[in-house]
Design a protein around this nucleic acid. Structure first.
Lengths: 184, 184, 184, 184
DNA sequence: TATGAATGAGGGTTCATTCAT
DNA sequence: TATGAATGAACCCTCATTCAT
């Protein structure tokens, strides 16, 4: 789904995969901004392009289509979150601290990326298609990390046995947890 | 904006006033169904018409435009709910019973009208415009009824003083409570 | 073209062909009024019906379609004019008086029937189709009457020989004389 | 509202600036042709596009809507006429010559641009809206030029004092002079 | 890579016309 | 004759996507 043609990736050097392609990111952020403002369906690709400071056609060099733009926002945001989470969690052995850091990171991300948070909350539920695709990949990993923290903490006796990772997830993910099918 | 004429109700037999759909209602339900399935923006008016078993143009005899179709779903559902609520609440003097009935009615409505419930949850937050219009009319009345029940019960000593009607509303309305401005 | 279904003409008695069918005339006048106001293309048949105080469907009992409505306005107006002209001209032998009466009748008709006059001037030239049909029938007769008056007057020595019926026609019919093809 | 970009004029060769149509002009001429043939209301935008050899959507890159297409025909034609008139009038000092040139230009324009002339005559009076907009801008300037020529000629003693610029205007503009408000 | 003019499929909406009553 | 609800063909316009430069 990612679909960002890398035809020009020849210049890409090792170790800079994440930081490169500022235009990719610029378009993504512009899309988030515009989608947050007008809603996905009302938003025009040309608006996104203008907000990103590129030509309309350029959007299609980095994204397959409008849909991909939306999908990529989620993937990108979740990817960033998960990467940071893994990094931060590796810095401590204490389960409580891990849970705390995970939570803080979760909310600070949402705060820092207002547009993305809005798009998450509003647009994600639009389409079951999106949700299903999303929940089987990034969301699954999100939950997995959480589960690991909690189970580890329970084994070490830091958390009560009754603590349920699903409940914790609900507290964190909040309202947009109620997508169809996954149902927890 | 509402239904205009009822002359076509000629075939209406005694005892089926409730189940027999007027054309207005038929189109409304069809719209809810189609919107629930495809989402408002992906849905085509012609699909709604087909689902309602009428010609495309007929939709516009009963609704101003596609937007009005969505708005009317909410108004109609809330109107029905509020009417039934007032009726049922009038049948008892007991505050606890009132609260119970109100809650049961709330959830049974959502259950019986799956499509509308889905559209409510998914599409309503789309547009701030919708939400604002909606929250100042029907939602306001919904909250008002709830507040009256609770205050009455508190005066009679049936409910604890700390019981907060806003919290009760949140329990009932759940996730889609986060409309702009009202904010609680 | 006339096309006014006479299915209900059984009740029509001899001698009242012209005065009967007040509804036909009512619709015709309403059409002239609405067309004059909004222009033929912007006018809606339902507007005409409302202005005439009848139901939409009723219009189609008297006229084949919207086009026929426009055509009939001209036919009817010209028919009335020509009939009156013949009547009035028969009342005198004097050519000058005939010409005077013809002219007075011409302008007083236009004055009395403002709406029709406007429709004449504005809508008639719309369509070559209209014009051709019109100019070969009613207009031809109009010109014929005028020519007869003038030639008769010239024979009697009341008008100068150089007097040209075409010029006279132009003075009377004015600007809307320049339709394609007839060219005089 | 006018043409936006000219980057597509790449194929433009020297010496054909006048005859080579920009896309804006091509669409305008196509519109005039189609409108002249079918009348504004019967004409379809897709016909105009086809006649201009562009896609339907392209029309909307150069014109706001179908209405704008009609308006622009007038503005463009009058703009061209006025520009040429000013140029030609600047080449002579003789008032009679000026008046002659103005008249010749007037009629030769109408002759060369048959379609536009027809649209002028037929469609312009359709809408009071059009006429008012038109008569307060381009037409006003047209009359102004004429007035200046005549007054100048009268001062120099080349024209009789009784010569009335309004009468001259009527002779040139002919039947379509009867717009609302200006009234002469 | 980048551009943005051009494309054209698609859909909301209107309204002349029909037809069952 | 009269009604007016219902029909559905037709058309304007938008905008995601392409492609020549």
């Amino acid at each position: 789904m990612q679909a960002r043609k890398r035809t020009a990736a020849e210049g890409m050097e090792a170790g800079e995969e994440k930081t490169r392609s500022t235009k990719y990111e610029a378009i993504l952020r512009a899309a988030a901004k515009v989608f947050a403002q007008s809603g996905y369906f009302n938003a025009k690709v040309s608006e996104v392009a203008r907000a990103a400071g590129v030509a309309d056609g350029t959007v299609y060099l980095y994204f397959k289509n409008k849909d991909d733009l939306l999908t990529s926002i989620f993937s990108w945001a979740m990817g960033q979150f998960l990467q940071r989470a893994r990094t931060e969690l590796g810095e401590t052995e204490d389960s409580s601290e891990k849970l705390r850091r995970f939570s803080v990171l979760h909310f600070s991300q949402l705060e820092q990326e207002r547009d993305i948070a809005i798009v998450f909350q509003i647009e994600l539920r639009q389409s079951t298609k999106f949700m299903e695709q999303f929940s089987t990949t990034y969301l699954a990993e999100y939950l997995q990390i959480l589960r690991e923290i909690i189970e580890e903490g329970q084994e070490k006796g830091h958390f009560r046995k009754e603590l349920n990772s699903k409940v914790v997830a609900k507290v964190l993910l909040g309202p947009w947890t109620r997508w169809p099918r996954t149902g927890y």
